Amino acid sequence: MQRMTVKEAAPYIGASEYKLREMVRMKQIPAYKVGNRIFFRKDTIDEWIAQQERENFQQFTASK
């Protein structure tokens, strides 16, 4: 299991650190905390990205 910090995960998903922290607060992205520190599992983030792609594609094709 590879874990990533906010600093590492933000460029990985193409977001700012601020936006990523906001997404965690809004429970829009899977993460876990150890104390006040936020971490992400790389494989979980990869799954989340794939799910976002599927949902966006379905919305795109449904609107045609």
Rank of each mutant, 00 (worst) to 15 (best):
D43N: 02
F60D: 05
N36P: 11
Y18K: 14
F57D: 09
N36I: 12
K33L: 03
Y18P: 04
T44Q: 08
M4I: 13
E47F: 09
P11K: 01
Q51Y: 06
E17N: 05
A15Y: 12
G35K: 01
T5C: 12
Q58V: 12
V6Q: 05
M26S: 10
E22F: 13
M23E: 06
M23C: 06
E47T: 06
I29K: 00
T61C: 04
Q51W: 07
E8G: 06
F60M: 13
R3V: 11
F57I: 13
K33A: 10
P11D: 00
D46Q: 02
L20M: 04
Q58M: 09
E22S: 11
M4T: 10
K19V: 14
N36F: 11
I45S: 00
K27W: 06
R3S: 07
K64W: 10
L20Y: 04
A31S: 14
K7G: 10
M23V: 05
A10W: 07
R41C: 07
R37W: 12
K27I: 08
A10P: 07
E47L: 03
P30N: 00
W48G: 01
K33N: 05
M26F: 14
F39P: 08
A15C: 05
Q58L: 12
P11C: 02
T61Y: 09
I38D: 02
R37K: 15
A50R: 14
A10I: 06
K7A: 15
T61S: 03
Q59V: 04
A62W: 12
F60C: 04
G14A: 03
T5L: 11
I49S: 01
Q52R: 15
K64C: 03
Q52S: 03
A10F: 11
R37S: 15
E53T: 06
R3K: 08
A9Q: 09
F40M: 02
T44C: 03
Q52M: 14
P11V: 03
A31C: 09
F57V: 08
A31M: 00
Y12D: 06
A15D: 03
M26C: 07
Q2V: 15
T44S: 02
R25Y: 07
I45F: 01
K27C: 11
N36V: 14
R3E: 08
A9K: 02
R21T: 07
A15L: 14
D43I: 09
V6W: 10
I49D: 02
Q2S: 15
K27G: 09
K27F: 11
Y18Q: 08
I29Q: 03
R21D: 13
D46P: 04
I49H: 00
I45L: 15
K64L: 13
F40T: 10
Y12N: 05
A50M: 01
L20A: 01
R41D: 12
L20F: 05
A31H: 14
Q59A: 09
